[in-house]
Design a protein around this nucleic acid. Sequence first.
DNA 1: CTGTTAGCGCCTTCAC
DNA 2: GTGAAGGCGCTAACAG
Lengths: 357, 357
Amino acid sequence: MKKTTINDIAEEAGVSKATVSRVLNHEELVDEETRNRVLDIIRKRRYSPSLVARNLSNRASNTIGIIIPEIDNSFYGKILRTIVNITDAEGLIPICFDTGNNPEKDMKSLRILRDQRVGGLIYAPSVEHGGADAAERAKQLLDDMGVPAVLIDRNVPDFQRSGVFFDGFDAGYRATKILIAAGHTDVGIITGSLKLGIARERLRGYLEAHEACGLPVRRTLIFEGDFTSKTAYLLSREMLSLPERPGAVLTCNNDTGLGFLQALAERKLRTPRDIEHIGIDEIDVFDDLRMRYNHVARGRVEMAQKAMKLLTAQIRNPDTRPESVWIAPRFVLDAHLERVAVRRGIIDKKQKGASRL
Amino acid sequence: MKKTTINDIAEEAGVSKATVSRVLNHEELVDEETRNRVLDIIRKRRYSPSLVARNLSNRASNTIGIIIPEIDNSFYGKILRTIVNITDAEGLIPICFDTGNNPEKDMKSLRILRDQRVGGLIYAPSVEHGGADAAERAKQLLDDMGVPAVLIDRNVPDFQRSGVFFDGFDAGYRATKILIAAGHTDVGIITGSLKLGIARERLRGYLEAHEACGLPVRRTLIFEGDFTSKTAYLLSREMLSLPERPGAVLTCNNDTGLGFLQALAERKLRTPRDIEHIGIDEIDVFDDLRMRYNHVARGRVEMAQKAMKLLTAQIRNPDTRPESVWIAPRFVLDAHLERVAVRRGIIDKKQKGASRL
DNA sequence: CTGTTAGCGCCTTCAC
DNA sequence: GTGAAGGCGCTAACAG
């Protein structure tokens, strides 16, 4: 039993399929009577046209691709959900891939999306985790697709594409400054893999903050992690058993923050009593629990919205120039740190709002 | 500048497009020499065939649809990630929708998937949140699609479809029994919306456990929530300020657990010292933090895997009979509760394993 | 082995 | 206002 097609409808209505097509797409061009007759039959047969055939015929595509590293990381989960909801409102159909930070999966996903002839693409690349040629190969694929692509979260300048990114330098810079302003001369940091630009940016902020404050950087307090809680935990243990344990720590993403907190708990240390801490990324559960968690919110929803805005603009007008947007960090701090930060002019003032965003 | 097509390749190679098609699909049928010539040109022109056209021609579909309520809930996030990774390994292309628990979005998603002519569908329905006709309309759409669909997490028996579900009755039953066995005669429960079958099942387990233990149910300790942390928090506050505050509480999903814990913290109560607690669903962060959290794991990854297994089986052989699978609860308890549970034969023995799954 | 033909389901000219 | 014809990009017979 095959699907009913436009031919079946035409036949049953005693008209040509061109007419059926017209009532489907330009109903004003069809005589009201025949139109109603056709529509009745369409309803009766529960017919609905194939978007596949329609796309082929129109040389158009109503699908967009989404490539992200880890769907089940709340950061990307929130982004994905936002994107999916917007595509849907825009009449676009989302095809999703999860690369698990594996650049080979980037390629594979790009190839599939290319073959599927998507009309556009939101892409959080993992190519920095690969060899030197990974970015190049990805760029090649991206260009082959010949459709708009908007990067999100992670930039790869060589791609020369639009993108929406978090201002990680500023986040690292100001977070560190705040900790220093709070009286700490020994601020530790647990970074992500420094293969990643976003991890380097945050570290650069940390370093420049020291410089700006005339404070020497203590290399022993810089730990290169990989944005996983496990590694962060191990590094934090090391850090906490240093003879000169840092008085404050900056962790560079959500999972890293968790790993750090685990090590802290294990040592029966508490924040801020024993050690000060600011994490980058919101951690939703702490919000649910109304638990204090000094952090820098990354505006996930905003990122996703802007990315979709850029993408749809480029889809509508392919001549749109690539444009990059940086989302400013938003600091969510306890009363003490906030007071310090505001007094020193590091952050503007009490910026209230759901940290969920 | 349009995409190069099979015609371009054929022309440049001086062969017919049938031959090009053959080297693409049945390369053994083509003379090695011409094959290589064609392949060279394909590579040179960076040609890759359109799956859209191919699917149309084959009357096949390489896409599957995924409809879930909330991508950014870690439960569904994990499921989605697992599914996406499997589809990808199976050569299928995943199209995802998020309904936000809104049955109208169920319909909308189903319609799009129908029009997109997906080859199959994994579906966690939200229709129980809608009016009486919601399930019926969804079933109609499902049937119209004429492709295999596997339900996940939430069952709608009327659909008469395969599915993979969590055994919520057993979870509620045994969790309650454990709490009773631990000496509590006053076990409270915060359920999900009782419009949902999965919420009713868990409550039913709770009720029957009381009966099995010859313990009267205290209606005042039953709170109907909606699976959100906010509601759970408000209800928990009520519950905790009851003159006869329960000695133990069962919460029925991850967010509900969080809401309860928030209320607990607010009252400066601690578990298990002041009150005993078992939650249904794993909460990943507690895992990361190595925090004790008595709970019933729902086997998210396993659910997703089984669902995909059922789906691919049905896609391969459309005559496969619908089959439903129930995932058994796995209890992750602290030493005390575990000892009690094992001694009473409520759970088998120390079942170790990553609660992450 | 390879080319020709027909068709997948739909849309869009171009006539009438 | 409507139909016939051609084409979107590809595959599957059917001949030769």
